[in-house]
Amino acid sequence: MEYAGEIQRKKRLLQYLCIIGLFSIFSTTIAKNPVLPLYAESLGAGNATIGLISAVSPFAGILLSFPVGVLSDHLGRRRLLLLSGVVFLLAPLMYLAAVDPLLLIPIRFFHGMATAILGPVVGAVIAEEFGEHKGEMMGTYSSATLAGRSAAPLIGGAVLSLFAAAPAVSAYHIVYLIAFAAGIPVFLLMLRYHDPGTVRNLSSVTVSSFRENLLVFFRNRGLRCASAAEMATYFCFGTFETFLPLYLLTAGISAWQTGIIFFVQVIIIAATKPFFGRLADRCDPIRQILFGLLLTGGSLGAFSLTGSFWLLLGISCVFGIGMSLSTVAANVYAATVAEQNRLGASMGALSSIMDIGHSAGPLIAGVAVTVAGYTASFVLCLLTALAVFGYIILGTRQ
């Protein structure tokens, strides 16, 4: 009976986490895509300001994910989840009060704090609670977040279209009220989570705690390899989502066809992550990471070889499979090789490095596009994936 009760408890926990992931990522995504640049422009922002507003959210992840992970190891997961829930609840209301586009910069950073906290803390919770099944559960949770990420721009765009005749600010405000409404179940469900073990108070966290955890992370070969894989994969993904639409335009692919290419890829990633997570639980996650890197880099390098919609759609599907393979396996491998009392710190550092790759991809590839064209940027991603492929082989050799 106790065993059956434990299974039911974990099943409910996963359901809670998936609902949290769905609504939280929906909330933060609808707040930025496609409404944020349009809202900023309506407040008088220029292109440079709009770019800065968009950049601060991933910067929050780079800056905060690791310290948040360390704090969750010391103070417990619940306290950090509740803090994240408060941010998800309050941030959408702050957009409503913005009267100057520059105010959107601190608001967007504040909103970015929510996902910077949520990602590594939930990753640590799943790794702790689900043990040998953590890969499958991480994949299931990730699929739930992708569902929220996919639905948000569709609903946000529909709202803006429906209220196009209304004053522009009113239409934007409706979108941010929807984001606020999505934050309500997130906060309420976070209230229901309780840490399974004992937690300490804030006095147990010192500067040396952060330094020690960072040193332990980078001394661990497995964690270095997992973080390199995440950085390379999201370097490729950042380049893909930023420059592929522009490349497809030059290749004569219409906007609706480009939308299909991106939509099908998201569906493939969401559908395959639980399966690939289960595979990483049962097989060697390193091999899965390596295969995923080859598919991700190779498919991105192949985009410039054809202008056929159907071939491009197929290549995009391969890219999605490669990304699904490598990302879920990297998280499983990191959780496996990390010290159990440092799971939060390890998942936080992994998340920060992932955000660095995601941000660096468009920046570096943008230079490559300017200097040598789109093909050069895609080949650069292929070379990055191959370099990390070699690094992981050398780093994991016994």
Rank of each mutant, 00 (worst) to 15 (best):
Y3E: 15
I7N: 11
R9G: 12
F23K: 04
S24K: 07
S24V: 12
S27D: 03
I30V: 14
V35T: 09
Y39H: 11
E41I: 00
L43I: 00
A45Q: 02
G46H: 06
G46K: 00
T49A: 12
I50T: 12
I53A: 06
V56C: 11
A60H: 07
L64P: 05
L64W: 09
F66V: 01
L71N: 08
S72G: 00
L83R: 04
S84C: 07
V86L: 15
V87R: 15
L93M: 08
A98E: 05
D100Y: 08
R108E: 11
F110Y: 15
F110Q: 10
H111V: 06
M113G: 13
T115F: 13
V122Q: 01
A127T: 04
E128C: 00
G131Y: 04
G148T: 01
S150P: 08
A158L: 15
V159W: 00
L160T: 08
A164P: 07
A168D: 10
A168Y: 04
V169L: 12
V169F: 13
V169P: 09
S170R: 14
S170D: 14
H173P: 08
I184T: 11
V186L: 05
V186I: 03
H194W: 08
H194K: 15
G197H: 11
T198F: 13
V199S: 10
V199G: 02
S204K: 10
V205D: 04
T206L: 06
V207Q: 05
R211D: 13
N213T: 02
V216S: 14
R219E: 09
R219A: 09
C225V: 11
A226L: 06
M231S: 13
T233V: 14
F243L: 08
L248P: 04
A251G: 06
I253C: 01
S254Y: 12
G259K: 03
F262Y: 14
F263R: 08
V264N: 02
I269V: 14
G277Y: 01
G277V: 01
R278E: 05
I286P: 00
R287E: 06
F291M: 13
G292A: 00
L294R: 05
L294M: 12
T296W: 01
S299Y: 01
S304G: 05
T306G: 06
G307K: 14
F309H: 04
W310S: 15
L313R: 07
G314C: 14
V318A: 13
S324V: 12
S326N: 09
A330S: 15
N331S: 14
N331I: 07
Y333H: 10
Y333V: 03
Y333M: 10
A334V: 06
A334S: 13
T336E: 14
L343Q: 09
G344M: 03
A349N: 03
S351N: 13
I353R: 04
I356Q: 12
I356H: 07
S359E: 02
A365T: 09
Y374N: 08
Y374H: 11
L383E: 01
L383C: 09
L383N: 01
L383I: 05
T384P: 00
T384H: 03
L394M: 11
Q398E: 15
